[in-house]
Design a protein around this nucleic acid. Structure first.
Lengths: 156, 156
DNA sequence: ATAATTCCTCAACCTTGGTTGAGGTCAATA
DNA sequence: TATTGACCTCAACCAAGGTTGAGGAATTAT
């Protein structure tokens, strides 16, 4: 026969949720949660079970990377909308969307570097008032790194 | 008389929670929450109302700064334990504890810079697999920046 | 054919970092 | 003195990012 002995899973083979979980290291419950939030959109087989395309491995990888960079799932969902719908994303589609991450990362590094400068000067003078930080950094507040309360310390 | 006309609030004047809120920009409810978590420990007046020392303004500033750097309230509580108990912290006490923040910030900048390198190479090859990232960055995962799921992408 | 897995949905729960409101007390002001 | 604030506690709620478990259906292995 022409068919290979141990079915070398063609690139079209769909993945079950458990298989995707294993490949990505993301738990099954988290994958369902991502679907619920619109980050992934698996098809279903006749029995109603989720069937993922192999390209979804990359999609989940993107989610993980973006999370590392501090994007919320909502922001990630937004970013993923820039991918072609219908067609399976190509490498250059992924490269394009990843550029956005890189820019964000650069902004973050920049903010942290400014923060470092401020903190150094705060430590230097012992004031710990963020007066200096605010001079350097008027209303940015590294807010990408966490919600954090409103800022506006009026020191002693 | 020797006393000044409009009572130039001596450094010993205690602050009410509302006054502290105004000085720090932190809401009254958040201040109560911080007390609950052990980050601040105001005394009480005869009527049971919180009375903060002026040094608490600095303490709250520290909390805000540390939050910006991604520390959880629990971690901040830990850090604050290094302050002298009993005595009001001096400028050099604050400088010492802030050194820890600076080191953490440096680690973060370092991690982000490595992440940038990885991401650049991922974008370059279009793989988006984090294979390269993991090479550069074996098990660190910028985890300081958020809980984030377990990492272990096995690409397509 | 049957047993063992895996999967399904839905609801409840968890942690962080708070906010909001009810019901009641304290303190400053007219 | 009366009355506004400002304050008190306690409980419930919110959003994010999930986990856990119940009860049941589908799939896979023997």
């Amino acid at each position: 026969m022409c068919s290979m002995p141990t079915a070398p899973k063609s690139p079209a083979d769909p993945l079950s949720i458990g298989q995707l979980a294993k490949r990505t290291g993301v738990s099954v419950s988290a994958l369902r949660f991502y679907e619920d939030k619109g980050l992934i959109d698996p098809g279903r087989n006749a029995g109603g079970q989720r069937r993922f395309k192999r390209a979804d491995v990359r999609r989940v990888s993107f989610i993980l990377i973006a999370q590392q960079l501090g994007l919320s799932l909502g922001e990630i969902a937004q970013a993923l909308k820039s991918l072609p719908n219908g067609r399976t994303p190509t490498q250059s589609d992924w490269a394009a969307i990843s550029e956005g991450l890189l820019q964000r990362l650069d902004r973050q590094i920049d903010e942290m570097t400014r923060m470092r400068k401020s903190l150094t000067s705060c430590i230097g003078c012992g004031c710990l008032s963020l007066k200096a930080c605010r001079l350097y950094n008027p209303q940015d507040r590294l807010s990408e790194l966490g919600a954090g309360p409103h800022f506006g310390v009026t020191p002693d």
